[in-house]
């Protein structure tokens, strides 16, 4: 996983709330068995509409998605994160994220920065008035800068540290393998096994 400190890229104002993962990537794209190449499925249904924001050439190369509240609800599919990242997004800004999506994002290196809805509205207006403008997301200072707007965002300390260091989860856990083995020795005997019966 690549370390993330600061990122500057074109901001894409997505004025929709409750964007569920079926909209981010429809189920039909879930049949693949690879980890890459999901960019064609990103917002697949909406991209057929020529007025959709990513079909506007000014925003097409966007890497900072500025979304409405409750982004990433619904199915736990991690493909939603892959689709966003394969397309080129490194950051999603929203006033509220669905838990599973947010967890998945942190593990893949996609920053989900939680801002006040008022700040989201300001950034939307700015990006709509000046299409193709850049947004800078600084994970060190936890701030988003868009034109004159400087807004703080929330991300939990642990995820932030992991992103800053570019650390992958499994290696971190394996540093405590001894604890896992000790825990296993204390598990009750009545716990089920999938390999019997």
């Amino acid at each position: 996983m690549d370390a993330f400190t600061t990122h500057t890229g074109i901001g894409v104002p997505l004025r929709r709330s409750n964007v569920d993962t079926d909209q981010i990537i429809p189920a039909v794209y879930l049949k693949r068995v690879t980890r890459t190449g999901f960019e064609d499925g990103l917002f697949a249904a909406w991209r057929k509409d020529e007025t959709f924001i990513l079909n506007n050439p000014s925003y097409a190369a966007g890497s900072v998605l500025v979304a409405g509240s409750d982004f990433g609800t619904g199915s736990s599919r991690e493909h939603a994160v892959w689709a966003l990242m394969n397309y080129g997004f490194r950051v999603v800004l929203s006033s509220r994220f669905a838990d599973i999506f947010r967890g998945n994002s942190g593990k893949q290196g996609l920053l989900t920065a939680q801002l006040a809805q008022d700040d989201i509205e300001l950034i939307w207006k700015y990006l709509e008035n000046e299409p193709g403008s850049a947004v800078t997301v600084d994970l060190v200072s936890r701030t988003v800068t868009a034109g004159d707007i400087v807004a703080p965002f929330e991300v939990d300390d642990y995820t932030r540290w992991r992103l800053l260091e570019g650390l992958d989860d499994i290696s971190l856990t394996l540093r405590h393998e001894q604890d896992v083995t000790e825990f296993e020795s204390r598990r009750p005997a009545y716990k089920p096994s999938t390999t019997v019966a």
């Binding site: 736990s76 599919r77 991690e78 493909h79 994160v81 599973i100 967890g103 998945n104 593990k107 893949q108 989860d169 499994i170 856990t173």
Partner: peptide
Amino acid sequence: FGIGTSEVEH
């Protein structure tokens, strides 16, 4: 609870 594919790997 439901988990993502990275967590499945974990």
